[in-house]
Design a protein around this nucleic acid. Structure first.
Lengths: 339, 339
DNA sequence: CTGCTTGTTGTGCACGAACACAAAAATATG
DNA sequence: CATATTTTTGTGTTCGTGCACAACAAGCAG
């Protein structure tokens, strides 16, 4: 249509240069007119080279949060199995800053074609991103976005909205004179609590806006061995508690404290994330509800984005993607085995 | 690897016959060993022929339930834009059995390659399916499954689970002495109410199992013009109502009755489906929560399934797919603009 | 044994895309 | 103006797949 050969079009599409301005414009006009779109799969067929990606997240123990993210990445790998992709997984201890640093420090030298990054520690993440920026290696965030970095994209959940959502759930059901007991994690060096902090802010803001601030009691899950006793004591000291909220994925700990220590079934427990332990509690009825953030879809989207970036350097408007916040209870659980 | 040419492999893969038993086995062994998988996109590239599908659902007014299903189908069309697909949309009046019959009767003669079917009237659907079976035309159900038909697949939601889910929401929050007011549709000839009936069964079973049966009051949304007055009267007659439940997607009607007629904001209203009107009510706060059933994903999956069936006749174990049941409130609404 | 039919197997081309290389045109150098 | 160099453009091959057609083999009738 533009009176040029396929080779010239190819050069223009991939910005390989050595094309006269006149032909470029003619071809680009035609491309626009016919609405040309890359076909990622036929591209992959003729693409000789493979890609090497590094995936670095906190330890992904089976049935835990991060293993869902990894599962999503594996699914994307399957979906794009026509592209040769090699993945290197590098896990770090999300409670140990130095473990994170040593893992992150090793990544730039791996000369990967791209990195999927589950950030926890702000400082280490920023320093890694700076190194990757320097080498021109693209990276994608999952689970959280770190301000100041330049990722190709980030796939996470609006944690403040999660907190507000929680508030909404409580608003309807909180009985006269009853209270809300809020558990947050308190493990030193756990900077992922930036997520739980945002959740807490969303919840407290919502409760304040609805005049329920005085109904909220704050507590922490102690990191020690006798956690269960301390939790039980907290409940005993606050017998008016109707709702217990756990802002991280360790709701099952509170559940067993309530079951074993308190032997009460009048407390509604709400937690986060479809971990294996939480699922068990949901089925047994010891956890009432879980807020979930589509970790599998996060992982899936991240790898897909990295592929489309490397193949086409495709830019989109806003690359901070916020995934839906799902509420899962016993009754809809069977249909949430993701994707 | 099997010592045969590509042509022979092709014949085996597509069951075109004229292959000796010995070679067939040799090739099939190799296919299994290397884990051969079709690549739908490269298939499409070399596929000369196009496909012609018929999509028949109730009228899909803008912003209404069925338009989301259609949007999902359009998305799949985009995703598989390398395949030449022509879609014919045939809409019928979901409240008029004879409209449905005349539309359905015309479908077999269209000689389509496949049909996506949003069923409402059981009898008409079964008779259409029989005709399609006779002609060997594959069809896929969306939104509901009709017993007795032989679809390639169905994509719907477990409506009883929806009802039970509703019950779970109420269980936590129902206050002492308060009641639940249940609205179902009562439009003659609307057999789609098989969905709302299942929802009602799920809810009543749940309430019974939790000793709350006596807290439930049943009512209907009158199809007449003065519906609002009648609804308001119902609420006035039952001042103890804390939760109002609408089992179809017309929650917005109850919402405006409560707003305009009752001028109360102490009633929690729960409805179904992210229709435009319902979304508005959610944003305004006149509806508390909506149960949603991923209509877009239903449409998307349906078209995708039809394509993979026609290209490869791929059979899977259980082809009744149940999609997740989502709870949407004001706070997580922005993240539910699907897919 | 020859010719014909039928069944089986292989070959060649097309599709959209990537990329190496050859050819042609434009520009620079002597 | 001829030749060398650089820039621009076109060609051919490849990938996995579908499909038309050619080639070969086997069986059967005359």
């Amino acid at each position: 249509m533009a009176g040029v050969s396929a080779g010239t079009v190819d050069r223009i599409l991939h910005g390989r240069g050595n094309v006269s301005e006149a032909k470029r414009q003619a071809v680009e006009a035609v491309l626009g007119k016919v609405g040309y779109k890359f076909n990622i799969h036929t591209s992959a067929v003729s693409l000789k080279r493979g890609y090497h990606f590094v995936v670095t997240t906190p330890e992904a123990g089976e049935g835990e949060y991060w293993s869902s993210v990894i599962a999503g990445i594996r699914e994307a790998l399957e979906e794009y199995s026509d592209i040769q992709i090699q993945l290197d997984y590098l896990f770090y201890d999300q409670f140990d800053e130095s473990s994170c640093r040593s893992v992150f420090d090793s990544i730039p030298q791996l000369e990967a074609d791209g990195v999927i990054l589950g950030p926890t520690f702000r400082r280490e993440t920023l320093s890694l991103c700076e190194a990757l920026d320097g080498k021109g290696i693209p990276y994608v965030f999952v689970d959280a976005n770190i301000e100041g970095a330049n990722p190709v994209a980030s796939y996470s959940v609006d944690q403040e909205a999660c907190g507000a959502f929680l508030g909404r759930m409580l608003l309807a059901g909180l009985h006269e004179g009853k209270k809300i007991l809020l558990f947050r994690s308190e493990r030193r060096g756990d900077e992922r609590s930036s997520n739980t902090l945002a959740r807490e802010k969303g919840l407290t803001d919502f409760l304040k806006a609805n005049g329920l601030s005085d109904r909220l009691i704050r507590s922490t899950i102690p990191p020690t061995d006798d956690a269960e006793n301390i939790i039980v004591d907290t409940f005993r000291a606050n017998p008016q508690v109707q709702y217990a909220i756990v802002l991280n994925s360790r709701g099952n700990i509170i559940a067993s404290a309530i079951q074993n220590g308190l032997k009460s079934d009048s407390i509604q427990l709400i937690g986060f994330d479809l971990t294996r332990d939480n699922i068990k509690c949901l089925e047994e009825g010891t956890i009432t509800a879980l807020l979930c953030q589509r970790p599998q879809l996060q992982g899936f989207s991240a790898l897909r984005r990295l592929i489309s970036w490397l193949l086409y350097r495709s830019r989109e408007e806003d690359e901070r993607h916020f995934l839906p916040i799902d509420l899962v209870v016993k009754e809809n659980l069977p249909y949430y085995r993701e994707m």
